[in-house]
Write a protein that binds this DNA or RNA. Sequence first.
DNA 1: CATCTAGGTAACCTCTGGGTTACGTACTCT
DNA 2: AGAGTACGTAACCCAGAGGTTACCTAGATG
Lengths: 109, 109
Amino acid sequence: MAAAEKRRELAMDALGNPMRRRIVKLLRAGPLPVGSIAAELPVSRPAVSKHLRLLERAELVTFDKHGNRNLFRLNPSGFDAARGWLEEFWDEALARFARAVEDELEGKR
Amino acid sequence: MAAAEKRRELAMDALGNPMRRRIVKLLRAGPLPVGSIAAELPVSRPAVSKHLRLLERAELVTFDKHGNRNLFRLNPSGFDAARGWLEEFWDEALARFARAVEDELEGKR
DNA sequence: CATCTAGGTAACCTCTGGGTTACGTACTCT
DNA sequence: AGAGTACGTAACCCAGAGGTTACCTAGATG
């Protein structure tokens, strides 16, 4: 199904940005409110906010309102998607390579 | 060592672009000259050429001159790097999560 | 209630990444 | 040798990504 493919592309796109990678790295330690994330980074809070929305769409993070704050945490779903892209990609590459080798032998037989 | 980290960042950056992902997907089928790649894509040959240079720096592809043509093929090194990023990332996240759970139990004991 | 804190969003700016065309060069082929 | 092919690179263009400041609302707090 194409939906899975879409999610993988989204995840890869989202992770293809250094600042967003820094954000998710920060979140490894546990859930964080937006402000704390921004405090660790050389960009303003609104910038972080934007990145977080994007990461959310890519299902790489989730958040829940905790009183005043929005607590963001990692969402395994998106990382599975990213890993899925790489693995499917590589499996396919190896399969075709194997087939090529076989065709090669076939030709020489 | 920081060099490995650098390579991973490079690979993730390079794969964070739809057109470059399409290029490497094409290369799964086997080595291809620049022109053939461009023929499959909705962009000009010079554009593809640029992407290929970037992919090469990220060690995602290699090429060798074959007479007139430049034959590009996938380079496992870069893909290992990308996978490395994801895996290290996730392992670390899980480890910290486990530790957090333990601390939690510790506190309740 | 008044104030302070946390954070989303809009409006805006800047710059660079991804694209193009034009051109030069090296190799191939007849 | 001369025409044709494959490619890299330079010069240029421009939309959009990533950043900022300003403002508003919703909870917390005294």
